[in-house]
Write a protein that binds this DNA or RNA. Structure first.
Lengths: 205, 205
DNA sequence: TATTATAACGACACTGGTGTCGTTATACAA
DNA sequence: TTGTATAACGACACCAGTGTCGTTATAATA
């Protein structure tokens, strides 16, 4: 139905598929979506889909890649400009601009958990997960370190450990957010308590 | 090959299967184990296995049931005898007798995460998960409440929220324990920091 | 010892998902 | 306008896993 198209067209098609696929994964989760689901959502034939992605794992990794690079570009220059409050910066990194832990939850998070947990015995997947974890907590560690050097935060605890704790906290919330009905979750209260905790650990204000 | 056997024999056979199945799930995870794997590990035929459990979900729930009732009986009477330190009690509830967060990690935890996360769109599974969550955090909430009434803990925060935070912390660790290679994990440091946090929140000592 | 209820068996049919491949239609280059 | 490279298609063969069911062997019973 269509041949020898411009690079641009190829990119767009690919992007369309990715977008559709992402929706499907969000709705159904990683394990329970099949290539057929994606085909239907993206209006591609089987053959068409496999032209772009050689299997479900490949497809999902492409989505992860996309998301990650989005986040990185979003966050990267915020440390380069001068910062008037590292605390505020840290808070927005954790909870997003609107400070709402709910809104900041990546809708793909549950699928990500699936992807990495069910794939935990696969070497490739493990390495991938490890890399993402490192990147993830470095995001926080950098802010904390900068804040410590600046004197805004106490040096009482290693920035590394605090950063890990933040990631861990978010992972914990992600699990519960994925599993539990919202009514019983009380994300806000838990987040507030966690913030108190960070204040103490960093001896802020 | 064998008929009309005593109830006892049936129970033992069932228990044997469960034990073998549990090992398989621990090793392979929930999603990637098949009934065939279990058959082989438990030395049962297909028909034999299906006589006891009507599918993988059923089988897994039986294992969960087992584990849960073990834990409950382990913990239930510790609050009835008088307690000289609720803090110590809380610590052993969280970290086990030997205070080693690593050892206290349920080897089935990763599979549990799989089970509940991949099943999050299934009504039945959701309800099941919810019930377990409630039971889980009540375990901590009760100790905290008792400690607060006793005056050992501060009333500054609601016991409920603190209990949830504990569960959340454990879930977070479980995720990372499942995914990441041990070398980069630093469970101990994270746990220690968390304990500091609890001390502050409960204003203990 | 003979009878019987049934635990255990394993072949089977079925399902759903995968990746491939030969074919078709067409955007671009000449 | 024609020729060609190839995007897109969908039928197909294949595989892995599931749950069932008729058969077989035997522990308990009388």
């Amino acid at each position: 139905m269509s041949p020898k198209v411009s690079k641009e067209h190829l990119k767009q098609r690919r992007a369309k598929i990715l977008e559709a696929a992402k929706e499907v994964f969000i709705k159904q989760g990683y394990e329970h979506t099949t290539m057929k689901h994606v085909m239907e959502a993206a209006n591609v034939s089987r053959g068409g889909l496999y032209q772009y992605f050689s299997n479900k794992e490949d497809l999902y990794e492409a989505i992860l890649e996309n998301n990650l690079s989005n986040e990185v570009t979003e966050n990267q220059d915020s440390l380069e400009n001068e910062v008037d409050s590292y605390w505020d910066l840290l808070m927005t990194r954790i909870f997003g601009d609107d400070m709402d832990p709910d809104d900041n939850m990546d809708p793909l998070a549950p699928s990500n958990l699936e992807f990495f947990i069910t794939g935990r015995n696969d070497e490739r997947r493990r390495m991938y997960g490890k890399a993402r974890y490192q990147d993830g907590y470095k995001l926080y560690a950098d802010v904390i370190k900068a804040g410590q050097q600046n004197g805004e935060f106490s040096l009482k605890y290693d920035s590394d450990i605090i950063a890990r704790t933040i990631v861990s906290f978010i992972d914990g919330l992600a699990v519960e957010h994925a599993i539990l009905p919202l009514e019983i979750l009380k994300m806000k209260e838990q987040s507030e308590l966690f913030v108190e905790y960070l204040k103490l650990a960093l001896e802020v204000k």
